[in-house]
Amino acid sequence: MGVTIVIPTFNESGNVAELVRRISAVLSTTDAEILFVDDSTDGTDDEVRRVSQTAELPVRVIHRDAPINGLGGAVVEGFREAAYETCVVMDGDLQHPPEKIPELLERMGRGDVDLVAASRYVGDGNASGLADWGRHLVSRTSTVVTRAMFPAKLRRVTDPMTGFFA
């Protein structure tokens, strides 16, 4: 089973090399590609192209000069352009640990689910990547509101606002 790692980015050029290195390390024995969908103004797309020249995995970038539908639109465009049917979506800011990708893929590989969402609120997850108490509050409040809006569909979902999923 191959996988496309879809990474929507906005002005995250400083994270590209480390992110590609860490993803490559955990997917070295997997058919995989890394696809950045970039809405940046800081040259992130140029950095992706530079890093791709020596990367262990295929790395591509789609730079959107006129982003349509923001983050969600970037994810959808990544799905459309993915080389593989299975996709993992993660942020480009290094808050989502690439080392968890194999766990997401293993769970998807069982064949009984269509979506696997990583959550900072279960197991050994934590919300330390959120910058300050304000972001913690927004995250928790958004989670409570979203789960209240869809109680049946989200009864077993601990982090409906996650941006890290397969």
Rank of each mutant, 00 (worst) to 15 (best):
M1E: 10
M1L: 07
M1D: 09
G2N: 15
G2R: 15
P8Y: 09
F10H: 14
F10E: 07
S13W: 01
G14S: 07
A17Y: 04
L27E: 13
A32M: 11
D38C: 04
D39N: 11
S40Q: 10
T44P: 08
V48D: 11
R49N: 09
S52N: 13
T54E: 12
A55T: 14
A55D: 09
E56S: 15
E56R: 15
E56P: 00
R60T: 02
I62Q: 15
A66Y: 08
A66M: 01
P67S: 09
I68S: 01
N69S: 12
V75H: 00
V76E: 06
E77K: 06
R80Q: 00
A82P: 01
Y84G: 02
E85K: 13
T86K: 07
V89H: 02
M90T: 02
D91S: 12
Q95P: 00
H96Y: 08
E99N: 09
E103A: 13
L105P: 08
L105V: 07
E106T: 15
G109D: 12
D112K: 12
L115D: 13
V116G: 15
A117R: 14
S119A: 08
V122Y: 07
V122R: 15
V122W: 12
G125S: 05
N126T: 12
A127N: 10
A127W: 04
S128P: 00
G129Q: 08
L130M: 12
D132W: 06
G134M: 06
G134V: 13
G134S: 12
G134E: 13
R135S: 14
H136V: 04
V138Y: 06
S139T: 09
S142Q: 12
V145L: 10
T146S: 05
F150L: 13
P151L: 07
K153P: 00
K153F: 02
L154K: 06
R155W: 01
R155H: 05
A166L: 06
